[in-house]
């Protein structure tokens, strides 16, 4: 992760649906429950005082159940839905304040979005779907087709450029969606539950595809999902949302190791800890009788990846964090974690 200035900085973002929405924010009304507020004023708070930063090149995941406000949040960030209050800094500019012309400019060149239901134009073939954003950017036909062909290759759609969306499987359609989003070479990619409409096997392929693209292109991504295992797989950091508010932000390891509350704990319960936690989490002081000359492993190794070495070694492994010895991990420690103990 990059520790420099954030790429995106969202501060105190609110979205309230219904009439006189701006009167709700900052009033005591915000403390009412959802149904109370709805019966009293007819308003619904979809996004509640949300703040977070996204670092350049980071994959930032927003995770929540349906109705938690995650889709509204991502639409507020691109202003497909106008937020009620708050700010979002991007390259020193408050996106929520820019006028329509500037907003279109940003959407054309800086931001791209991938949608759950693909959002492909049914009357255009693959190449012209991908070239759409270039077309409205005023790029001439030869140039935009050249660029479209580059991204077609990037996402593995070779040979399909003249097919129509209805001729493609869901997975292929979302590849077109990805290619379309990449065509303008944006700085930030917003992905709104991009794989939720796909069946599980295809979904796994597409998750790998996003990870690969992220490695190759290094784009900053804001990734929305309702699936925690997906979040853990693709995310550098995860924000968990509930009732419009962010409950916790952290790396997958943070969430699993230190859930902020019962809600998050419930969520992460089903995640295999060995897939998320690193040796740092298991390392302990050597007890009397422990051998201290076992093999050495780095502290940021995921337990699953270290398991084979640890289980095959007769002695506990030593955990090393950039030269500092953190302690040891024995086969029993690993087995206890995998079988569900702490």
């Amino acid at each position: 992760m990059n520790s420099g200035a954030p790429m995106i900085s969202v501060k105190n973002l609110w979205k309230v649906f219904g009439a006189n929405a701006d009167k709700v924010v900052g009033s005591p009304l915000v403390d009412l429950s959802r149904s109370e507020l709805r019966t009293k004023t007819g308003n619904t708070i979809a996004v509640r005082d949300v703040s977070f930063d996204v670092a350049p090149g980071e994959v930032f995941v927003v995770m929540g159940l349906s109705g938690s406000g995650k889709s509204t949040l991502v639409r507020c960030m691109t202003r497909l839905i106008e937020p009620t209050q708050g700010s979002m800094d991007f390259e020193g500019e408050d996106i929520l304040k820019v006028d329509n012309a500037r907003l279109r400019e940003l959407r054309k060149t800086r931001f791209s979005m991938v949608f759950q239901h693909f959002g492909l134009l049914p009357h255009r073939n693959v190449i012209d779907n991908i070239a759409y954003s270039l077309e409205i950017n005023g790029v001439n036909k030869a140039d935009r087709h050249k660029r479209a062909n580059e991204v077609i290759e990037l996402v593995g759609l070779q040979g399909y450029s003249h097919a129509y969306p209805e001729q493609l499987s869901g997975g292929m359609q979302q590849r077109v969606g990805l290619a379309r989003a990449l065509a303008v070479d944006p700085q930030v990619l917003f992905l709104d539950e991009p794989f939720s409409a796909l069946d599980p096997l295809i979904r796994r392929d597409m998750q790998q595809e996003v990870i690969r693209l992220h490695h190759e292109l290094g784009k900053t991504m804001v990734f929305i999902t309702h699936d925690l295992s997906e979040a853990v797989k693709v995310g550098d950091r995860i924000a968990i949302m509930r009732d419009g508010a962010i409950v916790q932000i952290g790396t997958p390891e943070d969430l699993v190791a230190n859930p902020a509350d019962e809600y998050v704990a419930n969520f992460v319960r089903d995640i295999a800890k060995s897939h998320v936690l690193t040796l740092k989490h298991l390392a302990r002081k050597a007890a009397p009788g422990d051998a201290t000359d076992g093999p050495e492993l780095a502290a940021n190794t995921i337990i699953r990846d270290a398991a084979q070495v640890i289980l095959q070694s007769h002695k506990p492994v030593r955990v090393n964090d950039n030269g500092t010895a953190l302690g040891i991990v024995s086969s029993e420690d690993v087995l206890r974690l995998i079988s569900g103990g702490a």
Partner: peptide, 11 residues
Amino acid sequence: SPIEAAESMGS
């Protein structure tokens, strides 16, 4: 959804 997508691309 295609309409929203077009909007998100700055149409």
